[in-house]
């Protein structure tokens, strides 16, 4: 029996260290937070139940500014040879691009921070190292934790009445209207992107098969556009399913689509192109070697390419059909479980 997906990833990051380096990630479950630390082939877990969480602290750090300074210096020293030589320089240009990109990313990600979670017996650092993200996650958690601690909160006023007036106060909590605890259905959310992925697979598959039969230029462009769009949508779906729980059947479909489009298709394209280029060169047409990057039309004109298109189209349609069947089956199971 497949394990139900109860955890939703909130954040992840890398922590460096000689003995304890590895990945850390924070996951949300219906009644607790799970902090996973993985190093090599082992994982360690720490669970923080909502009823035990006392405080979350976000402390601003200067790490982002330091990185900006380091990357800015790198960018400056990479620009120097270009400025001094007054001409393009491929090595320096590459470094300028790399440093510029990293600097831009660091600026866009915003200010850095350290986030700590406090319970009665421990204080742990969370993998929330950007202020914007930390605030977003904490705001999301605040409502859930307050809801879980509503019983504790209800006992507090009575205690404060009985307590000595000189006892230290830790601030009053704002009255928060507790929203319901995130249920599995709410966490699953809509998977419209995955449905779009299936639709796109069907469309491009049908276009590829039609082109293999009819040899129409317009359809060919639709099929190639569908190939690119499939790759983009599948990557987007993968990113989305890491942040949001989607129907279990959709995860593998997105992975298969990404792997097939990102790895198999370019490899097949390259091998196919080279084989035909070599074949044509052997038949006395050496110019083909100068045009390895065949245009789409030329590629389409290669002998037996319609078979490749046919296979691609069949693959897309089969994948979409498998996704649809799994989705329908999962929907049926969910309905039966609800009944």
């Amino acid at each position: 029996m497949k394990k139900p997906k109860v955890y939703r990833r909130l954040a992840s990051g890398h922590h460096f260290g000689f003995a304890s380096g590895g990945w850390v990630s924070l996951h949300l479950a219906p009644d607790h937070l799970l902090l996973r630390s993985s190093a090599a082939f082992a994982e360690q877990y720490r669970r923080f139940y909502f009823t035990d969480i006392e405080a979350i602290t976000i402390c601003k750090t200067v790490r982002g500014i330091l990185w900006n300074a380091i990357l800015g210096l790198g960018l400056f020293f990479s620009l120097l040879p270009i400025l001094l030589n007054r001409g393009p320089h491929i090595v320096a240009g590459s470094f300028v691009g790399a440093f510029g990109l990293l600097l831009l990313m660091n600026i866009l990600r915003g200010a850095t921070c350290q986030t700590h979670l406090q319970t009665r017996v421990q204080k742990r650092a969370l993998p929330l190292r950007r202020v914007r993200k930390a605030l977003r996650v904490v705001n999301q958690l605040t409502a859930t934790i307050n809801e879980a601690q509503v019983e504790i909160a209800s006992t507090l006023p009575r205690r404060s009445e009985n307590a000595d007036s000189s006892s230290p106060s830790v601030g009053t909590l704002p009255a928060v209207a507790p929203p319901p605890l995130p249920s599995q259905a709410e966490m699953a959310g809509t998977s419209w992107l995955h449905l779009a992925m299936i639709g796109l697979l069907l469309l491009s598959g049908a276009a590829a098969i039609w082109d293999a039969w009819q040899h129409q230029v317009a359809i060919m462009y639709v099929a190639f556009a569908g190939l690119g769009a499939n790759l983009a949508v599948a990557i987007w779906a993968l990113v989305r399913q890491r942040r949001k729980v989607v129907p279990m059947a959709m995860g593998p479909i997105a992975w298969v689509s990404v792997i097939a489009h990102a790895v198999a298709v370019p490899i097949v394209y390259t091998i196919y192109t080279y084989i035909h280029a070599i074949g044509l060169a052997q038949r006395g047409n050496p110019k083909v070697f100068q045009t390895v990057q065949l245009s789409l039309s030329e590629l389409r004109g290669l002998p037996a390419f319609e078979h490749v298109f046919m296979i691609y189209g069949a693959f897309c349609i089969l994948l979409a059909a498998a996704g649809s069947i799994l989705l329908v089956a999962e929907g049926g199971r969910t309905q039966r479980a609800q009944i």
Partner: peptide, 16 residues
């Protein structure tokens, strides 16, 4: 002087 924000929850005021 470190800049920080603190979010507390009812469990902080609970006596065990």
């Amino acid at each position: 002087g470190q800049l920080f924000r603190v979010f507390t929850f009812p469990a902080l005021q609970r006596t065990m």
